[in-house]
Design a protein around this nucleic acid. Structure first.
Lengths: 198, 198
DNA sequence: GATAAAAATGCCACTCAGTGGCATTTGCGT
DNA sequence: ACGCAAATGCCACTGAGTGGCATTTTTATC
């Protein structure tokens, strides 16, 4: 589903296989020994790829570790482009996010859980994750045809915050089916959160 | 104002002077040649401090570059501790932030403007800045005696987002007195932002 | 099917951030 | 003046990331 057009070219297929092998080995190795404690060479040895080649596939060690997160947002953008939606943009964001989640398979859930556990323990990873969120936000505003200005920016930032909070609530258990529920609750809590009293 | 108790000890004074010299030279050098383009050795040579010593003062190259930002939030926490406030927490946050801003002197504004310009151009700096925001949020929740849970987290995240958006609006001009106005506008736009329609 | 162009990979050496160990200096208290 | 503790400096190291260039592999053409 993520690859609707499998490229016939042998060269392209090999590239995709290498990319996937790197991402899978990364989540496996980092998951065992920890992100910071695992040198990149370990990963290179496991996949039998040279240092130089690795950096032609991924921009950094953090980049390959966050593959699962990037996959989700890639699907998010796909869903967003499929149909024009109306109503409160916050609900649009939430529904597109839930639809994207629904499209991810079991293996993704496993890798995603490992990834956010890693990010919770490694500031370097968390930092890159936050940067990625910022990039996504710019892209989402573009696709939604939101003009520059305070309100559109705040809206998208708020939605991403709700998503990140939902993941954080999910983090302790990482129970497979419970993520959508956390997302719904987080988005529902936005109003009361904004108006909390001292 | 930031140093109500100047420590008599000569040793302590020297340490503070070194810290400040590093921070000032950092903003000056990075401001001229750019953050990524300026090797740390440049800074060390300018301040005549050894590599090893630098890392006893600051955790990283990014850390020293973000000194102005950290100063602001340090003052923010001071103001927050000074008196119990009531009413909507969002307004409390905004008013404490404005009070903190009012306490910063002219030199700080100069350094702060340079700092956010640098962060806008260097993902590494921006990433560390975002991480610092996350740390601050945890500390703020602690000081406000907010229990864990979705709403408190969302509130503090929303406020930080408003602050960051205000700074972003301010970024193009960096006009000295205009930052508070942007902060007010950003906080005022939160409600309408949250309820934007497609 | 041989071959040349193009793309991908590997290897080597390099820069730069950050760390650990240990000797040396510097400020502090007596 | 002296001894102690803290601060600094120096050196060598790891680990991420990059540039140059030779080598292999895929593709396209004849």
């Amino acid at each position: 589903m993520t690859h609707p057009a499998p490229p016939a070219s042998l060269r392209e297929r090999k590239k995709i296989r290498t990319r996937q092998a790197l991402a899978e080995a990364a989540v496996a190795l980092f998951g065992e020994r920890g992100f910071d404690a695992t040198p990149l060479d370990e990963l290179l040895a496991a996949v039998e790829v040279s240092r130089r080649t690795f950096f032609r596939y991924y921009r950094s060690k953090e980049d390959v570790a966050l593959t699962a997160v990037k996959e989700l947002w890639s699907v998010f953008l796909e869903v967003l482009d499929e149909e024009q939606r109306s109503g409160p943009l916050r609900d649009v964001f939430r529904d597109v996010l839930l639809a994207a989640l629904a499209r991810m398979d079991e293996d993704w859930h496993r890798r995603f859980a490992t990834t956010i556990r890693l990010a919770a323990e490694s500031p370097a990873l968390e930092g890159h994750s936050l940067l990625h969120c910022a990039e996504m936000q710019a892209e989402i505003r573009r696709r939604l045809d939101l003009q520059d200005g305070l309100e559109p920016r705040l809206l998208v930032e708020f939605c991403v915050v709700a998503w990140r909070s939902a993941v954080d609530e999910w983090l302790p258990t990482c129970a497979p089916g419970e993520l959508p529920g956390h997302v719904r609750r987080a988005f529902a809590a936005m109003d009361s959160g904004l108006h909390l009293e001292a």
